[in-house]
Amino acid sequence: MFPSAVGSKLLMAATGLAILLFVLGHLAGNLQFFGGPDVINTYALHLRDLGPLLWVARLGLLAAFALHLSLAVSLTRRNSLARPEGYAFQTDFPQSSVASRHMWLTGWLILAFVVFHLAHFTFQWTHPEYRELHWKASDGREGHDVYSMIIKGFSQPFLVGLYIVAQVFLWLHLSHAVSSMLQTLGLKNPRNEKLLDLAGPVLATIIFVGYVSIPLAVLLGVVKPIVISSG
Protein backbone atom coordinates (compact mmCIF):
# COMPACT_ATOMS: atom_id res chain seq x y z
CA MET A 1 0.00 0.00 0.00
CA PHE A 2 1.38 3.39 -0.96
CA PRO A 3 1.11 6.18 1.60
CA SER A 4 -1.16 9.15 0.87
CA ALA A 5 0.19 12.60 0.06
CA VAL A 6 -0.16 13.63 3.69
CA GLY A 7 1.21 10.32 4.97
CA SER A 8 4.19 10.56 2.61
CA LYS A 9 4.99 13.98 3.99
CA LEU A 10 4.80 12.67 7.57
CA LEU A 11 7.34 10.00 6.65
CA MET A 12 9.44 12.56 4.80
CA ALA A 13 9.52 14.69 7.93
CA ALA A 14 10.31 11.73 10.21
CA THR A 15 13.15 10.46 8.01
CA GLY A 16 14.39 14.01 7.49
CA LEU A 17 14.45 14.47 11.26
CA ALA A 18 16.45 11.26 11.71
CA ILE A 19 19.01 12.42 9.16
CA LEU A 20 19.06 15.87 10.75
CA LEU A 21 19.87 14.35 14.15
CA PHE A 22 22.76 12.52 12.51
CA VAL A 23 23.93 15.74 10.84
CA LEU A 24 23.99 17.42 14.26
CA GLY A 25 25.70 14.49 15.97
CA HIS A 26 28.27 14.23 13.19
CA LEU A 27 28.97 17.94 13.53
CA ALA A 28 29.46 17.66 17.29
CA GLY A 29 31.92 14.84 16.65
CA ASN A 30 33.80 16.65 13.92
CA LEU A 31 34.22 19.80 15.97
CA GLN A 32 36.39 17.81 18.36
CA PHE A 33 39.02 18.32 15.69
CA PHE A 34 39.66 21.67 17.31
CA GLY A 35 40.56 19.85 20.52
CA GLY A 36 43.67 18.47 18.85
CA PRO A 37 44.79 15.00 17.73
CA ASP A 38 44.26 13.25 21.04
CA VAL A 39 40.68 14.43 21.39
CA ILE A 40 39.39 13.59 17.93
CA ASN A 41 41.38 10.41 17.56
CA THR A 42 40.16 9.13 20.91
CA TYR A 43 36.64 10.03 19.83
CA ALA A 44 37.15 7.97 16.68
CA LEU A 45 38.35 5.06 18.79
CA HIS A 46 35.31 5.31 21.03
CA LEU A 47 33.04 5.26 18.00
CA ARG A 48 34.75 2.12 16.77
CA ASP A 49 34.39 0.55 20.21
CA LEU A 50 30.63 0.82 19.94
CA GLY A 51 30.83 -2.19 17.65
CA PRO A 52 27.40 -3.63 16.83
CA LEU A 53 25.68 -0.52 18.19
CA LEU A 54 27.47 1.54 15.57
CA TRP A 55 26.13 -0.76 12.90
CA VAL A 56 22.60 -0.46 14.19
CA ALA A 57 22.92 3.33 13.92
CA ARG A 58 24.47 3.10 10.47
CA LEU A 59 21.77 0.80 9.14
CA GLY A 60 19.08 2.98 10.68
CA LEU A 61 20.56 6.01 8.99
CA LEU A 62 20.85 4.16 5.70
CA ALA A 63 17.20 3.12 5.94
CA ALA A 64 16.13 6.69 6.71
CA PHE A 65 18.10 7.93 3.71
CA ALA A 66 16.62 5.27 1.43
CA LEU A 67 13.08 6.07 2.55
CA HIS A 68 13.62 9.84 2.34
CA LEU A 69 14.95 9.42 -1.17
CA SER A 70 12.24 7.13 -2.49
CA LEU A 71 9.56 9.39 -1.01
CA ALA A 72 11.27 12.38 -2.62
CA VAL A 73 10.96 10.58 -5.95
CA SER A 74 7.31 9.62 -5.51
CA LEU A 75 6.27 13.01 -4.12
CA THR A 76 8.07 14.97 -6.81
CA ARG A 77 6.50 12.77 -9.46
CA ARG A 78 3.06 13.22 -7.95
CA ASN A 79 3.57 16.97 -7.77
CA SER A 80 4.73 17.42 -11.34
CA LEU A 81 1.90 15.25 -12.67
CA ALA A 82 -0.55 17.47 -10.78
CA ARG A 83 0.20 20.39 -13.10
CA PRO A 84 0.78 19.15 -16.64
CA GLU A 85 0.45 22.64 -18.11
CA GLY A 86 2.06 25.63 -16.41
CA TYR A 87 1.46 29.36 -16.64
CA ALA A 88 2.59 31.50 -19.54
CA PHE A 89 3.23 34.42 -17.22
CA GLN A 90 5.06 33.82 -13.97
CA THR A 91 7.59 36.32 -12.67
CA ASP A 92 7.61 35.89 -8.94
CA PHE A 93 6.09 33.87 -6.16
CA PRO A 94 3.99 35.40 -3.38
CA GLN A 95 6.03 34.06 -0.49
CA SER A 96 7.80 30.77 -1.15
CA SER A 97 11.57 30.81 -0.74
CA VAL A 98 13.97 29.70 -3.45
CA ALA A 99 15.00 26.93 -1.05
CA SER A 100 11.45 25.60 -0.73
CA ARG A 101 11.02 25.38 -4.49
CA HIS A 102 14.29 23.53 -5.06
CA MET A 103 14.26 20.79 -2.43
CA TRP A 104 14.49 18.16 -5.15
CA LEU A 105 17.62 19.71 -6.64
CA THR A 106 19.41 20.44 -3.37
CA GLY A 107 18.50 16.94 -2.16
CA TRP A 108 20.29 15.27 -5.06
CA LEU A 109 23.28 17.58 -4.77
CA ILE A 110 23.55 16.64 -1.09
CA LEU A 111 23.39 12.98 -2.00
CA ALA A 112 26.15 13.43 -4.57
CA PHE A 113 28.27 15.10 -1.90
CA VAL A 114 27.56 12.36 0.66
CA VAL A 115 28.71 9.73 -1.83
CA PHE A 116 31.91 11.65 -2.51
CA HIS A 117 32.47 12.33 1.19
CA LEU A 118 32.20 8.61 1.98
CA ALA A 119 34.63 7.78 -0.84
CA HIS A 120 36.99 10.47 0.41
CA PHE A 121 37.20 10.21 4.20
CA THR A 122 35.29 7.06 5.14
CA PHE A 123 36.45 4.50 2.59
CA GLN A 124 39.43 6.55 1.42
CA TRP A 125 39.05 5.32 -2.15
CA THR A 126 40.05 8.66 -3.57
CA HIS A 127 43.08 8.97 -1.28
CA PRO A 128 44.33 5.50 -0.27
CA GLU A 129 47.38 7.15 1.31
CA TYR A 130 45.16 8.26 4.24
CA ARG A 131 45.12 4.63 5.31
CA GLU A 132 48.78 4.87 6.30
CA LEU A 133 48.09 7.49 8.97
CA HIS A 134 48.43 5.87 12.39
CA TRP A 135 48.10 7.29 15.84
CA LYS A 136 49.16 6.00 19.23
CA ALA A 137 47.45 7.17 22.38
CA SER A 138 49.29 7.87 25.63
CA ASP A 139 47.71 4.73 27.07
CA GLY A 140 49.22 2.74 24.28
CA ARG A 141 46.08 2.16 22.24
CA GLU A 142 46.43 2.58 18.52
CA GLY A 143 44.09 3.82 15.87
CA HIS A 144 43.62 5.77 12.72
CA ASP A 145 45.02 9.31 12.74
CA VAL A 146 41.85 11.14 11.82
CA TYR A 147 43.41 14.46 12.77
CA SER A 148 46.17 14.28 10.19
CA MET A 149 43.76 12.96 7.59
CA ILE A 150 41.59 16.04 8.00
CA ILE A 151 44.62 18.32 7.74
CA LYS A 152 45.85 16.53 4.62
CA GLY A 153 42.38 16.48 3.09
CA PHE A 154 41.74 20.15 3.58
CA SER A 155 45.14 21.33 2.49
CA GLN A 156 43.86 21.01 -1.05
CA PRO A 157 41.97 24.21 -1.92
CA PHE A 158 39.92 22.38 -4.52
CA LEU A 159 38.55 19.97 -1.94
CA VAL A 160 37.87 22.78 0.52
CA GLY A 161 35.88 24.56 -2.18
CA LEU A 162 33.92 21.40 -2.87
CA TYR A 163 33.06 20.88 0.79
CA ILE A 164 31.97 24.50 1.19
CA VAL A 165 29.76 24.40 -1.91
CA ALA A 166 28.16 21.22 -0.59
CA GLN A 167 27.42 23.01 2.69
CA VAL A 168 25.67 25.77 0.75
CA PHE A 169 23.33 23.16 -0.70
CA LEU A 170 22.78 21.65 2.73
CA TRP A 171 22.04 25.14 4.05
CA LEU A 172 19.45 25.66 1.31
CA HIS A 173 17.81 22.28 1.95
CA LEU A 174 17.67 22.73 5.70
CA SER A 175 16.67 26.40 5.77
CA HIS A 176 13.32 25.28 4.39
CA ALA A 177 13.27 21.68 5.63
CA VAL A 178 13.45 22.29 9.37
CA SER A 179 10.56 24.76 9.59
CA SER A 180 8.61 22.72 7.05
CA MET A 181 9.13 19.56 9.08
CA LEU A 182 7.76 21.26 12.19
CA GLN A 183 4.61 22.13 10.26
CA THR A 184 4.34 18.64 8.75
CA LEU A 185 4.57 17.16 12.24
CA GLY A 186 1.83 19.54 13.36
CA LEU A 187 3.93 21.28 16.00
CA LYS A 188 3.25 24.86 14.93
CA ASN A 189 0.54 27.01 16.42
CA PRO A 190 -0.25 30.69 16.01
CA ARG A 191 1.79 31.51 19.14
CA ASN A 192 5.03 29.76 18.21
CA GLU A 193 4.70 30.14 14.44
CA LYS A 194 7.19 33.01 14.05
CA LEU A 195 9.76 31.25 16.21
CA LEU A 196 9.45 27.92 14.39
CA ASP A 197 9.65 29.65 11.00
CA LEU A 198 12.98 31.06 12.16
CA ALA A 199 14.18 27.67 13.37
CA GLY A 200 15.00 26.50 9.82
CA PRO A 201 17.26 29.37 8.74
CA VAL A 202 18.89 29.61 12.19
CA LEU A 203 19.65 25.90 12.57
CA ALA A 204 20.79 25.69 8.95
CA THR A 205 23.18 28.57 9.55
CA ILE A 206 24.59 27.03 12.74
CA ILE A 207 25.18 23.77 10.88
CA PHE A 208 26.73 25.63 7.95
CA VAL A 209 29.15 27.63 10.10
CA GLY A 210 30.04 24.56 12.14
CA TYR A 211 30.89 22.35 9.17
CA VAL A 212 32.62 25.03 7.13
CA SER A 213 34.84 26.08 10.04
CA ILE A 214 36.92 22.90 9.82
CA PRO A 215 38.10 23.03 6.18
CA LEU A 216 38.50 26.80 6.41
CA ALA A 217 40.57 26.60 9.59
CA VAL A 218 42.91 24.10 7.94
CA LEU A 219 43.20 25.94 4.64
CA LEU A 220 43.80 29.31 6.28
CA GLY A 221 46.39 27.78 8.58
CA VAL A 222 44.51 28.51 11.80
CA VAL A 223 45.00 24.88 12.76
CA LYS A 224 48.50 23.58 12.10
CA PRO A 225 49.49 20.00 11.41
CA ILE A 226 50.93 18.18 14.40
CA VAL A 227 53.21 15.37 13.35
CA ILE A 228 52.33 12.32 15.33
CA SER A 229 52.02 9.84 12.56
CA SER A 230 54.31 6.93 12.43
CA GLY A 231 53.29 6.19 8.87
Partner: peptide, 29 residues
Protein backbone atom coordinates in the same frame (compact mmCIF):
# COMPACT_ATOMS: atom_id res chain seq x y z
CA UNK B 1 -4.62 13.88 -8.66
CA UNK B 2 -3.77 16.96 -6.60
CA UNK B 3 -0.14 17.26 -5.50
CA UNK B 4 1.27 17.09 -1.98
CA UNK B 5 2.19 19.99 0.30
CA UNK B 6 5.73 21.39 0.43
CA UNK B 7 4.78 24.03 3.03
CA UNK B 8 5.96 26.87 0.80
CA UNK B 9 3.25 29.19 2.16
CA UNK B 10 2.23 30.64 -1.21
CA UNK B 11 -1.39 29.47 -0.81
CA UNK B 12 -2.13 31.63 2.23
CA UNK B 13 -0.77 34.66 0.40
CA UNK B 14 -3.24 34.38 -2.48
CA UNK B 15 -6.20 33.06 -0.49
CA UNK B 16 -8.99 35.67 -0.67
CA UNK B 17 -9.95 34.69 2.88
CA UNK B 18 -6.31 34.45 4.04
CA UNK B 19 -6.73 30.95 5.47
CA UNK B 20 -3.61 30.44 7.59
CA UNK B 21 -0.91 27.79 7.51
CA UNK B 22 -1.98 26.80 11.03
CA UNK B 23 -4.84 24.84 9.49
CA UNK B 24 -2.35 22.72 7.54
CA UNK B 25 -0.74 22.00 10.90
CA UNK B 26 -4.08 20.91 12.23
CA UNK B 27 -4.71 18.72 9.20
CA UNK B 28 -1.37 16.95 9.66
CA UNK B 29 -2.03 16.37 13.33
Amino acid sequence: TFGACTNTGDCTQVCPKEIGQNHINTLNR
